[in-house]
Design a protein around this nucleic acid. Structure first.
Lengths: 122, 122
DNA sequence: TTAATACATGAACAGTTATTCATATGTTGA
DNA sequence: TCAACATATGAATAACTGTTCATGTATTAA
């Protein structure tokens, strides 16, 4: 139970609705969490990466196969894979000179699917 | 049933794995869909917008309340709201000189929640 | 060892994006 | 009609992002 009269430091003046603001602040996500979540969504927010992730959600692929599927240069794909690796959205295993990529968990696959469903129902 | 021997136009040379590529191409999302989905995720991929959407997922808020909650200028918030409006992630209703914003559907709220849960389990 | 292959990476560049500032629009109450 | 207020928006700018090109590393086979 929070005493909003005391808790809230922006509860005066103009159009602002103290109660709303205080309540909203009370259950806002932290800056750090917002940052992390945004970072994840940002990675999903690029056509190339989205196609890569979608392809990987179906099967494990090596880099040059990914490049063939998304029709991009190997370098461009490698750069994107580095970002995806960095945020643990994908994992990889080496086999000789090849590297096989796959999604790191099905959580991602589920997010992806939900995004697709969203645009299909709009 | 697809005849991959005939269907696939990139099934030769180097490291590429014809079967994988052809299968992946077969169930790839279209460029247009990928574009749309990416666009949605891109909107979720910014800290300011994410905070706005998260706040709106709890309750309807007017512009200056949003500005107070996310601690941004009114102008910055308005600009972001325009983007969110444009992709129908939020809806609004006017009441006198104020405008009240809320999420357009709970689909968004659910995506948001899933994103938050993702980073909490990593 | 050497050449070929698969992948990674740094630098550079072009395109995009988020914020700020100034100003415009529209509503309300005096 | 005017002043105050809530919101929207155009322009400018700084920061960021994605691709390409050149090159580097590691692995394999000859």
């Amino acid at each position: 139970m929070i005493d909003f009269e005391r808790e809230c430091d922006v509860c005066e003046e103009l159009c602002e609705h103290p109660q709303n603001i205080c309540l909203a602040k009370a259950d806002a996500i932290s800056d750090e969490e917002a940052q992390l979540v945004a970072e994840t969504f940002k990675l999903l927010g690029d056509t190339t990466r989205l196609k890569i992730l979608h392809a990987l959600s179906k099967r494990e692929l090596c880099v040059c196969d990914i490049a063939a599927v998304v029709q991009m240069g190997q370098s461009a794909v490698s750069h994107q894979l580095r970002l995806l690796r960095g945020s643990r959205l994908v994992k990889y295993r080496k086999e000789g000179k090849m590297v096989w990529y796959s999604l790191d968990d099905e959580h991602i696959s589920s997010l992806l699917q939900q995004g697709i469903e969203h645009i299909r129902h709009t």
